[in-house]
Amino acid sequence: MASTIEDVAARAGVSTATVSRAMRGLDGVSKRSRDKVLEAARELGYVVSPTAQALATGHTGMIAVIVPTFNEWFSANVLEGAQRRLQSAGRLTAVLSASAVRGRPDYDVDVVSLRRRIDGVVNVSLPLTDEETREVAGLGVPVIAVGNPSPPFASVSLADREAGRIATRHLVNLGHRVIAYISGSRDELEPNTPGGQRLEGWRDVLVEEGLEHGPDLVVNSFFDVRGGHDAVLELLERRPDVTAVFAAADMIATGAMVALSEYGLRVPEDISIIGVDGDDTDPWVQLTTVVQDPAEMGAMAADLLLQIIGGGAVPEMTLVHGRLRPGRTTARPRDPEAADASPRRPPRR
Rank of each mutant, 00 (worst) to 15 (best):
G196Y: 01
G196P: 12
R198P: 12
R198M: 01
R198K: 12
L199K: 10
G201M: 08
G201I: 05
W202Q: 09
D204M: 07
V205R: 07
V207D: 13
E208S: 15
E209I: 06
L211D: 01
E212M: 13
E212R: 15
E212S: 12
H213R: 14
H213T: 07
G214N: 13
P215Y: 01
P215G: 05
D216K: 06
D216Y: 00
D216V: 03
V219Q: 07
V219G: 04
V219K: 03
V219L: 03
N220L: 00
F222V: 03
F223M: 11
F223I: 05
F223C: 01
D224R: 02
G227Q: 04
G228T: 08
H229M: 06
V232S: 10
V232A: 12
L233K: 06
E234L: 01
L235E: 02
L235V: 04
L236E: 05
E237G: 07
R239L: 03
R239P: 00
R239D: 03
P240N: 06
D241T: 11
D241F: 02
V242I: 12
T243R: 09
A244V: 04
V245R: 10
F246C: 08
A247F: 08
A248L: 02
A248P: 00
M251N: 07
A253Y: 09
A253Q: 09
A253M: 07
T254D: 01
G255E: 11
G255C: 12
G255M: 11
G255P: 15
A256G: 14
A256P: 06
A256F: 04
M257L: 14
V258E: 14
V258M: 11
A259E: 07
S261L: 04
S261C: 02
Y263K: 09
G264M: 06
G264E: 09
L265E: 12
R266P: 01
V267R: 09
E269K: 07
E269R: 11
E269M: 03
D270T: 13
I271H: 12
S272Q: 04
I274P: 00
G278R: 05
G278N: 05
D280H: 14
D282H: 13
V285D: 02
V285S: 05
Q286F: 00
T288S: 15
T288N: 02
T289G: 06
T289K: 09
V290D: 02
V291G: 10
V291D: 12
Q292I: 09
D293A: 11
D293T: 10
M297Y: 06
M297E: 15
M297Q: 15
G298T: 09
A299I: 04
A299E: 10
M300E: 14
A301N: 09
A301Y: 01
D303T: 13
D303A: 14
L305I: 05
Q307T: 15
Q307S: 15
I308Q: 14
I308K: 14
I309N: 05
I309M: 13
G310D: 05
G312T: 08
V314I: 13
P315K: 10
P315L: 03
M317P: 00
M317L: 12
T318D: 01
L319E: 13
H321D: 12
H321L: 11
H321T: 13
G322A: 10
R323G: 01
R325A: 13
